[in-house]
């Protein structure tokens, strides 16, 4: 097996007739910060829950810290920090009690660190969980997750519902953790500006499989977008380095990988070409998950079920 901290290998998962993950495969290397992006319902939460062993894959396999996710031992669980979408905390507890509780479950939990961090975020130890704001609950969840010095931090859309200031503070806690421990992070998010700041690698999940799985720097340096309006009936280019051809009212949107000057020169000869630009993460996201995109890698549920002998 590889040295990856997280491995998804052809994972399928469906709930009744809804086929949520359709052959999800990717890896997260040690020390990497991996951002999992996707529209609502793309399967991000399902993927993360499979990783934590809350759900089993119905085909394929997922490994975390070298162990199959359907068979995690306390040893692995103790090395994973998890911040869920709802920042669920016991409603009867105070901040202090929540810290004590978490400390009792993990031998490596640094109680001083947790209380200190909570104080820095303006949380009083006697405050009761139900009276915390959404942002405060998010912060407390993150503090509890990182205080044990996890090898892997998994966050499911941690910034959802947080204001700009809280999001930045959340990011600060994450940056401190990375600086201190070189921890591996896998997080899902809708805030592309945060992702652009901290992610080493991004995966864009669409209809249950990854359409993009690449280093952010590669996306910036190697992918170019341009608009091309052909003269007469010249056809758009085809080939391995043409990632996408989108029809416009006039001409085409081209997304190219490692395109050479010669290629751009050819395009400029056979039509009108806009100056090639590196796409922003937002452009790329809209391009490949937007409403006009035909679902790539799509496979009818029934077909898959019959192939694997049914659920």
């Amino acid at each position: 097996m590889s040295s990856a901290v997280v491995t998804f290998d052809g994972v399928h998962r469906w709930f009744g007739k809804s086929h949520v993950l359709r052959g999800l495969s990717f890896e997260v290397a040690p020390g990497q910060v991996y951002a999992l992006l996707g529209r609502n319902g793309a399967g991000k939460t399902t993927a993360l829950r499979i990783l934590l062993g809350f759900l089993a894959p119905l085909a394929g396999s997922a490994h975390v810290l070298g162990r199959d996710c359907t068979d995690l031992l306390p040893e692995q669980r103790g090395r994973i920090g998890y911040v869920g979408e709802e920042h669920r905390l016991y409603p009867t507890m105070t901040v202090q009690q929540a810290v004590n509780f978490e400390a009792a479950t993990r031998s490596t939990f640094r109680k001083d660190f947790a209380l200190e961090a909570a104080k820095r975020c303006g949380l009083r130890s006697g405050q009761r969980v139900p009276f915390l704001s959404r942002g405060q609950r998010a912060q407390l969840s993150l503090i509890l997750a990182v205080a044990s010095g996890p090898d892997l931090l998994i966050c499911d859309d941690p910034a959802l519902g947080l204001d700009v200031v809280m999001r930045r503070e959340f990011l600060d806690v994450m940056i401190d953790l990375l600086a201190d421990t070189g921890c591996t992070v896998l997080f899902s998010s809708h805030f592309l500006s945060d992702v652009e700041r901290v992610a080493d690698r991004v995966g864009i999940l669409h209809e249950g499989a990854l359409l993009v799985d690449a280093r952010l720097d590669d996306l910036k340096q190697r992918v170019r977008k341009c608009i091309w309006v052909p003269n007469g009936d010249a056809k758009p280019p085809v080939g391995d380095n043409v990632l996408r051809v989108g029809a416009r009212r006039q001409g085409f949107d081209l997304t190219l990988l490692d395109a050479t000057e010669a290629m751009f020169a050819d395009l400029a000869k056979s039509g009108e070409l806009s100056p090639p630009e590196a796409p922003s993460l937002e452009d790329l996201f809209l391009d490949i998950t937007g409403p006009e995109q035909p679902g790539m890698l799509r496979e009818p549920i029934e077909q898959f079920l019959s192939k694997t002998g049914g659920a």
Partner: peptide
């Protein structure tokens, strides 16, 4: 330091 600059710019220390 790496940590100071990462925090100041709010970017990944790596």
């Amino acid at each position: 330091s790496v940590r100071e600059l990462a925090r100041e710019l709010a970017i990944n220390p790596n």
